[in-house]
Design a protein around this nucleic acid. Structure first.
Lengths: 204, 204
DNA sequence: GACAAGTACGAACGATCGTTCTATTGTGTC
DNA sequence: GACACAATAGAACGATCGTTCGTACTTGTC
């Protein structure tokens, strides 16, 4: 059985329901955070019994981690992968940014990864470790994308990739914060404004 | 009985214990968020009985709101009030920023207001309303401070106060996010770097 | 069609949740 | 020192939490 066959393999019944559960879990975590994930409410939401749902994960912690992984997978799918189709450099960076500030719109609440980051940043445990690892990975990938724009000459050679990464992340976070305060449209408008100014700064 | 007498009045026993409870509550919320506040753990932490503690608030919701108010009070005390001693304009703005990124250091976990913001932004209810109201108030005050720096001529007359406010908030949020990822010192370093560049941009 | 494995259910567990009582202790006032 | 009242404790409630267990029902394989 080769790779193509594995990928094309029809998912078993268990895999299907597991995917359904995780879809509901991401939705819940998106609005109420990962700590609000409970076996009971999730079972009700999916029309399953508590024990039937529970059997797919073995513990609540594993359910939370699976939901986090699923959130990350969706982020990659909706934000990062499409940006890879754009040509390296500033264009790709801009696409990445645009996809990023837009992707909570396809969710019920806010960005689940952002939610997880706040929830577990100061609470030691497996969830914090998993979240921080994801965040660092995200930073690394974003820094790479920034570096490409430097290498291509579109951004000034003196640009410090990690500092610019920090500033782009900052704008995205403020955009997410602003959404419930003055609406998504206004938040994204200010975010784009800030982004363009930051980019302009690093082109001199 | 005039105002001075009221302020000088020795707090009753009940007020004292209430203050102790709220101190513990802020600490808990700082690390685990406001949703992790439970009557039981808080009672244990303060050495009281559940019912004795409960009687001070009447419901969990009121306890959460009281903890949020106390957090805001501390923020004002530690960040905003000291900045008012600095002269209006850029100096005050800079002091405000510096106090802001420093104030989670006097807490056990992170900024409780930031935590509350994420927890309730997408969950309708009294807590969300209270949090959003606080956030808007914060934005207004910060915008005022920015505007003073514009009026004094230290920032360019073309500066849009609300946009600059957005960008400063962005930097602070990224600073808080960065703290568990690459340490508070490095996070604040990058934050200051970003802040100075933003300010420089608006002086042209 | 039998058989094994995978999948889901229902009932129950101890623990903890927020909350409500009643009773007891402590505090401040005349 | 007695009295009124604020403050706290203790026990118990129904609900829900995560989890375990035994059992039934599906599914895919020979």
């Amino acid at each position: 059985m080769n790779v193509a066959q594995i990928l094309a393999a029809k998912p078993t019944k268990g895999e299907e329901t597991r995917a359904q559960i995780l879809a509901a879990a991401v939705e819940v975590a998106s609005t109420g955070g990962f700590e609000s994930l409970t076996i009971g409410t999730l079972a009700e939401k999916t029309g399953m019994s508590k024990s039937g749902l529970f059997a797919h994960f073995g513990s609540k912690l594993e359910l939370q981690i699976a939901a986090l992984d699923e959130s990350a997978r969706r982020f990659t799918e909706a934000v990062y992968m499409p940006a890879l189709k754009a040509p390296r450099g500033l264009k790709r960076l801009r696409t990445l940014f645009e996809n990023w500030i837009a992707w909570p719109m396809q969710l019920k609440g806010g960005c689940p990864i952002d939610a997880a980051s706040r929830e577990y940043a100061h609470k030691p445990g497996p969830m914090r470790d998993a979240v921080n690892e994801r965040q660092r990975l995200l930073d690394r990938e974003l820094t790479k994308t920034v570096q490409m724009a430097i290498d291509s000459g579109e951004l000034s050679a003196e640009t410090e990739a990690r500092q610019l990464t920090f500033e782009i992340v900052a704008i995205v976070l403020a955009c997410f914060r602003g959404e419930p305060l003055f609406g998504g449209d206004e938040a994204r408008k200010r975010a784009r404004h800030a982004f363009e100014r930051v980019i302009l700064d690093h082109q001199a």
